[in-house]
Every structure is written in structure tokens, then in C-alpha cells.
Design a protein around this nucleic acid. Structure first.
Lengths: 208, 208
DNA sequence: AAGTGCTTTTAGCAGTCGCTTAATTTTGGG
DNA sequence: CCCAAAATTAAGCGACTGCTAAAAGCACTT
């Protein structure tokens, strides 16, 4: 764990990339240090030299994704104009854009969340600021508690977006087009926008 | 693989139960035949005697869940009355009831869907009839294609329900109550009903 | 030329993995 | 009681696991 662990070190970056690719194929328990080293074209011991343990390696993969995630959302929210509805749609677009650009990320988070609790606290810690941002944006529209609270709306929209990347491939047989195609992704994006409108409309209607 | 593999055999059932419990803790690759045998209080070799391989064991766990799932939904849909909106809410209740009674099931499916493709075809095969049922129920309300098609509505609602069981525990820190409590589950159920109303209202409004 | 601090490699320990084989025990019908 | 079938057991094979210690390779300064 002496080397520079970030992406500026070429070897560490190659290991991180390899682990990232392999994680989605077998989860944490399916990931082996030798498998990572082989795919990275690097000696097995270097995995532990740079990341200390398998656990540490996986944590760095997760943290790297969340760093990019937060940076992408901050860049997008800085340019948002219009009323709340328009800003929510812009936020959804930024969110979907990131997932489209990092398709393994939602699958990784879901796999880690759905089993094994070793990384729950880490993921929860990184999700918190994103959730707080949405909670603040919905202040005044969504009630503070109950089934319409921001936490439910947040979980619903993020769940709808992220579950697409794991569930859609299952439907390959009964979908008329490839669910992994760009056209299918665009259609799904339109669905999410439609869903946000439906929720927003009902939120406003309920408040009256 | 000579013994009677179904639940009528006490030993096989004990093995299935143990595998079911352990699967959610470490996914398929975290599951070991010895771990299963130990938890079931049974000899390691019996796992292979009854299920042939680890893969076969996991498949039986999945199939057992889907058998119960289909049976529960069929029992519920047989008693559904009222207009479409009421029947959809009854379907959601039956769906949530099943997940509440089998909290490991949605997490297992999500973990399997999010990584490793060894079980994608099996899960997809079992999801198909459930999807077809919803598609048929929404015939005339949802268009056949595009972002409002039944397949999107189905994925959205099922994704919202199932993702709760994996994502909610992550929010334990910033939730004011235990997300695994019955009260939190009730609140989430109310949210899903509200969401279905929002979608239904907008579907009808868009059609006019 | 010797020394320094990082990076990489080699080799291996001790444990677990899926799975099999063969022997043993248990079971139930004739 | 006997015997065949079914169920269970102990033992182990070969491969793989996370991880480590020690040595070697390397660019660099003195």
C-alpha cells in the first residue's frame, strides 16, 4: 500500500480498470486478485502492493465511480435554469447521462446493495449527499414525511433508472429490440421523463 | 442427483433453505457447498447427491421462489373485482405482499440480474408470464410500443418495489426510522400505490 | 561505484473451493 | 430375516483463494 493509489499511477489505474470490468461479471466474491492481475497485465502481488487487500481494491473502484458521479452532477446542476419542473428534468438527464456513460456502475451498486453488507456503509455514505441535494430541491413540493416524502421520490426515480441496467437484459427475449441498444436507452429515458412528469403533476394536484 | 429433489424430501428442503439464506449474504460466488451443508446440518456430499452441482442448487432455489410467486399472484388475481384501476392496485398489493413475505427473494433476483449472466435466461423465462399478464391487463390503456408501453410500466413498478429491499438498508443512516421495519414497509407500499395512481392518471390524460 | 527508495517479480504458505469415489448405514418390501 | 435400493458418510484430488516475505530490477543522487 506504498505506491500512489490514484489514477495518476498507470499500474494502479490498470488494476482498477481490470477490477471494474471483472466485478460486474461475478460480484465481489467472484473477483480474484489473480484474475484482476492477469486482465491488467500485471503481477498478482501488485494488487496488494497498491491496494492492500481485495476489499481495499473494491472500495477504490466504488469511490472512483462516485467521484466521477458527483463531479458530473455538479457540472450539470451548475447550468440548470428554468422552473423546478425543468430543473428536475435536467437533473434526470444528467443522471441518465452518467449511467449511460458508465453502464457497469448501476449494476455494481445494485449487486453490492443486494447482497453482502461489507460495502453498505460505504455506498450509503456516498449516496447521502446526492439524496440531500434532491431533498433540498424538492423542499416545499414534497412533504417532509410520509409516502410522498423526498426520500421515497428519490429512491423511486433512482431505482427506476438503475434497475433498468440489470433488469432490461433479462427481457431480451420478449423485447422487440435489443434492450442494450442506444434506441432502447433513449426510449427508457423518455419513459423516466414521462414518469417524473406524472409524479410532479400528482404532487402539485395533491397539494391543492 | 438421484434423490427426490423437491421439498417433500426433508433433507433436500433443508439444503434449499440453507442455500436460500446464504445466497443473500454473498451471492452465488460467495456460496459454498460446505457452507450450505454446515448450515443445513448435513453432509457436504449430499448437496451434490440431491442437486448435482452448485449451479443446479441455485437454480432450484430460484425456481422454488417463482413457483410460490406465481401461485400467490394467481390466487390473488382470481379474486380481483372492480374497474382496471382497482384491479391494478390489488395486483400491486399482491405483489408487495409476496415480497414482504419473502424479503430475500427480490434481493436474490437483483443480485443475480446485476452480475453474472449464468441465471439470466432462467430468471427471464420465469418473468415472462408475469410480464405477459400485466401486458394483457394494460391492453387498451398503454400503447403497444414506445416509452409508455406496458413493458416500461411493468419494469418501472417491479423495479420500484424490488429495489426497495436492496436500496432501503443503505439509507438507514438518513432515514428517521428503521427502513426494515413494518412501518417503513407500509409507508413504501402507500408510495407505490400513489405512484401507480400518478401513472394511471397520466396515461388516461395523455390518451385524451 | 556505492547507496537509496520505489517498483516489480518469484515463490510459496495455509486455507478453501467444487466435486467425486467408495464405503457405510439406513430403509422398506418380499 | 434378507437383500436391493436409497441415503449418508469419510476421505481426498486438483485447482484456486487471499496474502506475504524476500529478492531482484530500476532510476536516481552522492
Amino acid at each position: 500500500m506504498n505506491g500512489r493509489t490514484d489514477e495518476r499511477n498507470e499500474t494502479a489505474a490498470k488494476i482498477l480498470d481490470a477490477a471494474d470490468e471483472l466485478l460486474v461479471e461475478g460480484g465481489v466474491n467472484g473477483l480474484s486478485s489473480r484474475g484482476v492481475a492477469t486482465r491488467a497485465g500485471v503481477n498478482n502481488a501488485l494488487v496488494f502492493y497498491y491496494f492492500g487487500s481485495k476489499q481495499g481494491l473494491v472500495e477504490r473502484v466504488i469511490e472512483r465511480y462516485y467521484q466521477r458521479h458527483v463531479a458530473a452532477l455538479e457540472a450539470a446542476t451548475g447550468m440548470m435554469t428554468g422552473d423546478l419542473r425543468e430543473r428536475l428534468h435536467a437533473l434526470v438527464d444528467a443522471y441518465v447521462d452518467f449511467m449511460e456513460a458508465h453502464r457497469r456502475f448501476p449494476r455494481l451498486v445494485q449487486a453490492l446493495a443486494a447482497s453482502g453488507s461489507d460495502f453498505h456503509e460505504l455506498i450509503g455514505r456516498h449516496m447521502t449527499p446526492l439524496f440531500r441535494w434532491v431533498e433540498h430541491a424538492l423542499d416545499g413540493v414534497a412533504p417532509a414525511t410520509g409516502p410522498l416524502a423526498a426520500r421515497h421520490l428519490y429512491l423511486t426515480v433512482s431505482g427506476v433508472v438503475t434497475s433498468w441496467y440489470s433488469q432490461a437484459p433479462l427481457m431480451a427475449g420478449l423485447w422487440d429490440r435489443d434492450p442494450e441498444s442506444a434506441a432502447a436507452a433513449d426510449e427508457r429515458r423518455a419513459h423516466v421523463h414521462w414518469l417524473v412528469d406524472a409524479m410532479y403533476d400528482k404532487l402539485v394536484a395533491d397539494a391543492m
